[in-house]
């Protein structure tokens, strides 16, 4: 029993250890900032990976939920005087509710049709955020009130490093729990054969909706953090390119690999930062590297590397 528990949560434990140890190797405070960004994105990617990698349902509009989470921690405190921490939860609840309402009709769609429907949803969120300037500040966005926990004003990157790291470990634990549960098995079954899943009594539509809502809430929390961390938010956070970035992180790290979610997020957060030294070549290089990765590690970094090691051992 004990070993069962430990193997299940092993990736979460590894991540916890990484979060704690990493700062000892940071040459400067700047790295806390990068670390915090990686963890925040990884949180959203874990959620999206549950949807895409496990249940096999694509979403090209997940940044929409990032946006809902982000604007919750602006609109709540600024217009309603709510504390920011509460708004993180409110945002997640709103995102979950929106995912429920949107997911019900569109999750019946399959494959590329689902892709275009989710893409449309993401665009709708971004358009509303851009145009309802009375609430959202329009295309220029708004500055985000700082997070205050009790009497502690959260500012520095290091604080956010720890908050994001701890939340990510929590996100890992929930995801890993879910995978080894009746719901998790049902979701993986749906990925491989919806018909067989149905015939075994799985309410496929409801399970898809459940995981869509959960993954939306992951993204929403990540969006709230991102806004609070950056101190400023624009509608770009909900844009198509952000959605694509999240999907790229999932695929690059490895569909269905929870650890891969962190690796994918790390690569795609760190890479552009590292490439800025190439100035105008940055985008071309990023695209090139993405192509090369996907051609040679087509199953994603973590599964491909794992397969290589398994092959060696034999």
């Amino acid at each position: 029993m004990r070993t069962l528990l430990e193997t299940r949560l092993l990736p979460a434990i590894v991540v916890a250890v990484i979060v704690v140890i990493l700062p000892y190797f940071f040459p400067s405070a700047y790295y806390f900032r990068v670390g915090a960004l990686v963890f925040i994105f990884a949180l959203a990617v874990v959620g999206l990976n549950l949807l895409m990698g496990f249940a096999g349902q694509v979403s090209l509009g997940h940044a929409g939920f990032l946006g809902i989470g982000a604007y919750s921690v602006v609109i709540g405190p600024v217009y309603f005087g709510l504390p920011s921490w509460l708004c993180v939860f409110v945002g997640a609840t709103v995102s979950g509710a929106v995912a429920f309402l949107v997911g019900r009709p569109i999750l019946r769609l399959k494959g590329h049709y689902l892709a275009v429907a989710t893409l449309g949803f993401g665009l709708l969120v971004a358009i509303v955020l851009t145009n309802e300037a009375g609430w959202t500040g329009g295309p220029d966005g708004m500055s985000v009130p700082r997070l205050a926990l009790f009497n502690w004003q959260v500012r520095g990157s290091d604080s956010w490093y720890w908050i994001a790291g701890a939340t990510l470990v929590g996100g890992f634990v929930l995801a890993l729990n879910l995978m080894e549960s009746p719901t998790g098995r049902a979701l993986q079954a749906i990925h491989d054969s919806e018909i067989a899943a149905l015939v075994l009594g799985i309410d496929v539509a409801r399970k898809k909706l459940t995981i869509f809502v959960i993954s939306a809430m992951y993204a929403s929390v990540a969006g709230s953090y991102l806004a609070l961390f950056n101190g400023h938010v624009t509608p770009d956070i909900a844009g198509f390119l952000r959605s694509i970035e999240l999907v790229a992180m999932v695929v690059l790290g490895g569909m269905g690999s929870i650890v891969g979610s962190l690796v994918g997020a790390a690569v795609l957060v760190v890479l552009p930062q590292a490439l800025t030294i190439f100035h105008e070549y940055e985008q071309a290089l990023l695209g090139f590297i993405l192509m090369v990765f996907m051609i040679f590690l087509r199953r994603g970094i973590v599964p491909s590397v794992a397969a290589t090691f398994a092959g060696r051992r034999k």
Partner: peptide, 9 residues
């Protein structure tokens, strides 16, 4: 993803 990489490139 490869075609998206290509488009960024």
């Amino acid at each position: 993803m490869i075609t998206i990489g290509a488009s960024i490139f």
